[in-house]
Nucleic acid binder design. Structure first.
Lengths: 205, 205, 205, 205
DNA sequence: TATTAAACGAGACGGTACGTCACGTCTTTGC
DNA sequence: GCAAAGACGTGACGTACCGTCTCGTTTAATA
């Protein structure tokens, strides 16, 4: 009998209808509501209905500016993308990458970005624009720091230059797998895995 | 969740009777309808309601045996995949795994099950039962053949016994990554990647 | 529809075993469960499903002996009818009828029969067999004692013989009205009402 | 948990848009469908599902305006009440009441209202909101005209003021009894019965 | 005494209806 | 003329019973 998804907006900051111009408050209220819902309820709690309720916005207003769920979701994700993990490089490829990955996992766990990214992957499976964005824009962009890490390691001879892309894909695939199956809670496994990806103890360079 | 109307009669004089048996026709009709719907409409057209309609089955019958959409999907997936990806083992771990993976990719590409599986992953990001099924039931079950492959390789000394699970997760992570970003079209990359995963040229055994 | 029992090729033996006898335990368990459910949950909690569960009986067993919900109701009611109030006749029609009615009300209030009867009336509004049972079987049967009361009063000159049926219907109508609107809690009103029905103070005899 | 308006004291009125108005077509389509179903199928064929189907309305629309089956019944009944018989008062209580009752019976027989009312009584036996509506809202409202008839008769000395309520309950009880047992076909009995209720020949005034 | 048909418990079956939720479109009203 | 509020038809959700239908077991009358 309760309103479980997206509470009523209650007293405080009720916006009032702004009239004829596109309302900046409306836009940011919608984006904020969408982000908060993703944080609190995850992708399942992310519905246009709930966002409208939370933002005190009309559903048609949302549909007018973000014609599909994917559009709204992408807008939220893009608005959040400023935070990035940065790691001090020590020259030890495996150690650096382990620390970088630990940072990434905790970032995914603690920030809306984790839920948002899971949502993006989910949305992409519908086959629309989200897929293109995920593959052609998001992936290369997000991978750049790690690619550089590998590149510098290869440059100083710590890694064959050939398998760089293989390592990259194995590393990102493993991370996705863990994120998408909600198993980011044991970063102790990382040294072993990443050691293996990078060439492993007792295995060649 | 309780039995609110008319308690079960508990212990005492219970006579025993097996009751009616599960109807094989009903089960296969449901599975067939589910499969056909997946083929025709994809994950979006896959609803319990639609399956029941198509199978001329009652909804409760479906819920009795497949408590969630994910369960039903899993049953369809399993019934289909076992018919498809089977590999003759040669004793060469990398070669065997490459051929198994090629089979998996072509199955995902050519068969509705691929799209359907992407749907399941998307569904799981909502955090409900689909996630549990995906992680606790689907993954272990589907990985069994590959796990055995590794286990047998380790048994004959072709692989250290330690990193078996690491290899497994790297392998499945890579495959998911390719599936979810719709990049299953270049299986030529597989020997290189799988070689690296299994210990790579000039590494390990 | 099949005529599976008919066929008997005349002449020969065509003997049929009589099979097991109707189980007395089953019958009484079902009736007891039905009564208890009516007491505890009222008409709303009274479903064949729930009765079967409570009685540890199979649904077909119930349907075999009580083909409709109304039949089962009626059986419950009749099984309880031995408790029906019997009033010592004093010769004062109004006083006797008041005491009889008080007994009826408390019977309706305290016994499952009240709930059962309300359920039967409800069921009868669907227009099926329940209506026939209610009108043609239940009503005349239940009214017999009161009809006799009136008849004896008329016989001794305490009531015109003409309006007997009118009085009966007024009396039963009033009781139904009170029962169906759940207002059996003020039997103090009975002397006034019944006095009026029977001819009232300062009126008639 | 209340505070649904936010009330903001400060500025002017803090008025909020009222939103779209209730659709008159939807409302009347639902009521018409409900009435027709009652006429054609009776209480048994009356389900929210069927009404929605027939009215080409959504179930949520129905539940929005008529939260329970009882409410919808009541609405159907009330929507029909304009046809209710109005009787020219002659000053002869019995004759007036007989004519009023004849009108009521033919109204019950010929209009959906009869079936609707029977359904309401049935529903009320479940003990939910329908019972409260029937007893506290429907009964007093429907009885008002007859109560007035008695009151005016008492005022002009044609009836003792005391037994007014008794007469009322006898009258309504008798009518219910006839309706609920589907015996509205012999209105010739009415003069006798109502004469008796109002004081009978040779009794009272 | 052995056979056999019926009644039993259990419960699966195809269905209907329930009441809720979210979808995306539409209309009304106020700024 | 945009935006809020929100009603609308649609349709899936998961649950409760309906009444019918097998199942194997138990039981008692017949032969």
């Amino acid at each position: 009998m309760d309103n479980q998804t997206g509470d009523a907006p209650e007293g405080a900051g009720r916006r009032v209808s702004s009239g004829a111009k596109r309302s900046v408050e409306a836009e940011s209220a919608v984006l904020a509501a969408a982000r908060d819902l993703l944080v609190e309820k995850g992708w399942a709690g992310f519905s246009i209905e709930a966002v409208a309720r939370r933002a005190s916005a009309g559903k048609p207003t949302i549909y007018r500016w973000w014609p599909s769920k994917a559009d709204l979701f992408l807008a939220v994700y893009i608005a959040e993308k400023d935070d990035v993990v940065v790691v001090q490089e020590t020259g030890d490829l495996v150690a650096d990458l382990v620390r970088y990955t630990e940072g990434l996992w905790s970032f995914w766990r603690d920030h809306p970005a984790g839920a948002a990214f899971r949502g993006l992957v989910a949305e992409a499976q519908g086959g629309g624009a989200a897929l293109d964005i995920l593959r052609d824009k998001f992936l290369p962009e997000r991978l750049a720091p790690v690619r550089d890490l590998f590149a510098r390691a290869a440059a100083r001879g710590a890694l064959d230059v050939g398998p760089t892309d293989i390592c990259l894909e194995l590393w990102i695939g493993f991370n996705w797998l863990r994120l998408l199956t909600d198993r980011l809670s044991d970063p102790e496994c990382l040294p072993g895995v990443i050691g293996w990806v990078c060439g492993g103890p007792g295995r060649g360079r």
